[in-house]
Design a protein around this nucleic acid. Structure first.
Lengths: 200, 200
DNA sequence: TTATCCATGTAATCGGTTACATGATTGT
DNA sequence: ACAATCATGTAACCGATTACATGGATAA
């Protein structure tokens, strides 16, 4: 059949507890933003489908000063479906990165602006890295990594988090290197005259 | 307006020369696979639209023992459009990684199978890394990185390539670490009995 | 007073994948 | 004999984003 990976990202998140559609979208940002993302609209739709298929179930919580909630949790069927998917064959994922397209196509005139875009990415990645490191400290709770990997009931979330941390670190290092290279080259081009064929 | 990034990935690739739709899809695999990918069908469609809008133009080459080709190249308008887009504001790209979802959701019973999936990723990444390193050696052509960054008419492709190399290296290192962790933990769980609550 | 948060959804559209179709040529 | 390569497309579908809609509660 098809991909439908959002479905399994939702089921995986529901391993950690009960959530409303609204909360799931925010939970994605908190714990799973490393490798998945979805808007509430999409999640509501997927939850509806999965409820019809019996993979999740909802209990309604009536609130006074707030809109009512529907809190979803996994059913046994949902757990089984997730378990089967985990080890099912999957095809390579393709990276798409708009900034690298821009970089690839950039000419002399745009080097400094590109350096700024690279800086902006670095800032965003730094913020993410800090959040991941806080999460790491929280889940380790004083234990060493080795201890944690022996004791924790599920080590997957930690392994995935570590992937995110490494990725952000590496991205930040590349950003610094690339921004430098862009500025050095832009300075050199400026020194030697704006027009390519107008040498001294 | 909209994203339409495929459009700009195509225009960026056409900076390097003329291509048929078929060749563009393969060129994506060769030089741009680091940060973009598309199937021929999609490229044909995009080329058609861009031709109508005057961003690219085609000359037809009649062949005997092969189907005829339409070879596309950039127009001045296409170059301008690309130039404008390069420094236009763009929003953060979201990573989606199915393998990490699987990992996140994995229970004790699946650890060894997950380790195999991680190994499989490592193999694929190693193959990509080797291809990128060959490309790197080819574009450097004996020069040092520093020399190249001063001399090359466009440094963007090298900066983007370097991002790919770092990414693959880092991914491979993580794969090795994660596969180890999975196998160590799986061995420990096996030693202490398959049933969680069946301790000695 | 304006904006943001909670909480839910519908509708339109777009971007990407899969399936289907053609047909000669070259390699295993 | 069979598969892959070259070369082009169409049609159906699915997944994801954007826009729109509601409406009270709290924070700036």
């Amino acid at each position: 059949m098809n991909r439908m990976s959002l479905r399994f990202a939702v089921l995986a998140t529901l391993l950690d507890g009960e959530f409303t559609g609204y909360d799931l979208a925010r939970q994605f940002d908190a714990s799973v933003s490393n490798f998945w993302h979805a808007l509430p609209q999409q999640i509501y739709g997927e939850l509806k489908k999965m409820e019809e298929e019996g993979l999740v179930e909802a209990r309604t919580v009536i609130q006074e000063s707030r809109p009512n909630k529907r809190i979803f949790s996994l059913t046994t069927l949902g757990r089984e479906e997730l378990g089967r998917w985990i080890t099912a064959p999957g095809r390579p994922s393709s990276n798409k990165d708009e900034l690298l397209v821009r970089l690839y196509a950039a000419g002399t005139a745009q080097l400094l602006l590109l350096a700024d875009l690279v800086d902006a990415r670095k800032k965003r990645r730094l913020a993410k890295l800090e959040r991941y490191q806080q999460t790491r400290a929280r889940v380790l709770a004083g234990r060493s990594e080795e201890e944690y990997l022996c004791q924790a009931p599920r080590i997957g979330p930690y392994l995935a988090l570590q992937r995110g941390i490494r990725f952000e670190e590496d991205t930040i290092a590349w950003c610094e290197w690339a921004a430098d290279a862009l500025r050095i080259r832009a300075a050199k081009d400026a020194r030697e005259g704006a027009l390519p064929a107008a040498g001294a």
